[in-house]
Simulated scan of single mutants.
Amino acid sequence: MVVHKDPNCGCCNGWIRHLQQAGFKVTAKDETDMAAVKQRLGVPSSKQSCHTAEIGGYVVEGHVPAEHIKHLLAARPKARGLVLPGMPIGSPGMEAPDGRVDAYTVELLAGDGGTKPFAR
């Protein structure tokens, strides 16, 4: 997996650690223009987060848990990838000291840029 990230982002490193602990081999690429990366990979502006990854022909946007990425790779749906918009508290890399976890939905990103729920 290649993770494109801002060099100054700490939560991106937390997400990378989560992926590595789940068995993913991760190459981090510090980028100076994340908007260009997201545009190249077709991530709609309304679905963006702080980092963007590429794996197995898919894009993964944001703090998507490793278990959902594994499910995507096993199921191989016809889609562009997964998105978790924003930076939900309690998602991997965004853990809160008090253990709080906000509800969030990981979405499947279709080729036309539309989304539908993938996991909650």
Rank of each mutant, 00 (worst) to 15 (best):
H4D: 11
P88Q: 10
G114L: 02
V106N: 05
F118C: 11
P44C: 06
P117L: 08
S46D: 15
D6S: 15
G23L: 14
A79Q: 13
G93I: 09
S45F: 08
G57A: 11
H68A: 02
G86N: 11
P88G: 09
L82M: 13
I89V: 15
H63V: 05
C9S: 10
E61F: 02
A53E: 06
V26D: 01
P97L: 11
G90D: 10
D98E: 04
G114A: 15
E67Q: 13
G62M: 06
T52A: 05
D102C: 01
L73V: 10
L82A: 04
N13H: 12
K38N: 13
A75M: 07
R17N: 15
A79H: 09
D112V: 06
Y58E: 12
K29R: 14
E31F: 01
A35C: 01
E54V: 15
H63L: 05
L109E: 02
D30I: 08
R76N: 12
G57K: 12
V2L: 14
V43D: 00
P77R: 12
R120P: 04
C50W: 07
K47S: 04
G10N: 13
E31V: 12
G57S: 10
A75G: 05
E31K: 00
G10M: 12
T115S: 14
C9P: 11
M34I: 12
G86V: 09
G111R: 08
D6R: 01
W15D: 10
D6T: 09
A110E: 12
V59A: 03
K47V: 00
G42C: 08
G93S: 13
R40H: 12
I55G: 03
G23D: 13
